[in-house]
Design a protein around this nucleic acid. Structure first.
Length: 262
DNA sequence: TATGTCAAAGCCATTACGTCA
DNA sequence: TCTGACGTAATGGCTTTGACA
């Protein structure tokens, strides 16, 4: 029985029940990366690329190369922010990024402390969309994403690592649920078959009694058309007279009840 | 051609931290 | 204010793989 479990999102549907991600998805053969490869076809953000350049501008970080990719293709998308007032959305980004930068600097100062930096919703959404496109990143993709989100490449790498782990965990839960249902179903089937077997056995053991009804009602074997005869002992006891025996009696040889009946 | 070494990348288990009820 | 549960970022160790001598 093949358990073709392609429930939910799996990295490799052909792997059947296994939920393991391909161990090595090294992208050495990947085509040259373009930014649009990293982005969802339907961005969840008004303009996924907009906030970061905005942010860089607000922070006076124009020297930070945000446009890490081929300018010819995505230049428009990465163009400077529009002239409208900075939205609260962008301000939130600004504040979040301030926190990140402060966190980074703090970590640099006392490297022993492990500061956990919470990603903003925007960053998470961006990463999530990228994950839908590629569950693994090649170094270039990682760098591009890191620059886009103002994160360290290591952070992007870790996020994808943890995201793959979460996916696998969820898939495992789904698989467990499915197997649980399979198990329950098989148990029911097993019970049903056991019951059926018991009934058949009971029927088989009852049959001789069926065959041992009073002689008047069971005088002839349907297969051989022989009537019940007396045993030799009975014959001698009755002076060789043929008698009908009312006592239970199993015929031997061809008169085996099972042989005759079936 | 076979083999050992090394670096890179991924997975896994675990820790540590932030948030929330 | 405290606390425990939970989600998740981060870490360290191990394995696998490909390149290279």
């Amino acid at each position: 029985m093949e358990l073709a479990l392609s429930l939910g999102h799996t990295n490799n549907a052909s792997m059947g029940f296994s939920v393991a991600l391909p161990h090595h998805t090294r992208a050495s053969s990947d085509p040259p990366l373009q930014l649009h490869h990293l982005l969802p076809s339907t961005p969840v953000l008004p303009s996924p690329r907009l906030p970061i350049p905005c942010l860089s501008h607000a922070l006076g970080m124009e020297d930070t190369p945000v446009r890490a990719l081929d300018d010819t293709e995505d230049g428009a998308a990465l163009s400077s922010p529009n002239s409208s007032a900075v939205s609260s959305f962008q301000m939130e980004l600004y504040r979040n990024s301030r926190k990140f930068f402060e966190g980074d600097s703090e970590e640099d100062e006392n490297g022993s402390t492990r500061k956990k930096l919470r990603l903003s919703k925007t960053q998470s959404a961006f990463l999530e969309d990228s994950f839908k496109e590629h569950t693994t990143l090649n170094p270039k993709q990682k760098l591009v994403l890191a620059k886009e989100l103002n994160l360290r490449p290591r952070q992007v790498e870790v996020w994808f690592q943890n995201r793959r782990a979460r996916t696998k965990l969820k898939q495992t839960e789904v698989d467990c649920e499915y197997l649980k249902r399979c198990c329950e179903s098989l148990s029911e089937e097993n019970k049903r078959l056991q019951k059926e077997l018991q009934e058949l056995r009971a029927f088989k053991t009852c049959e001789p009694f069926f065959m041992q009804l009073p002689a008047t009602t069971l005088t002839m074997c349907p297969s051989c058309e022989r009537v019940a005869t007396t045993t030799s002992a009975a014959a001698s006891a009755t002076n060789n007279d043929s008698v009908y025996l009312n006592k239970p009696r199993i015929l031997s040889g061809p008169h085996d009840p099972l042989e005759c009946f079936f």
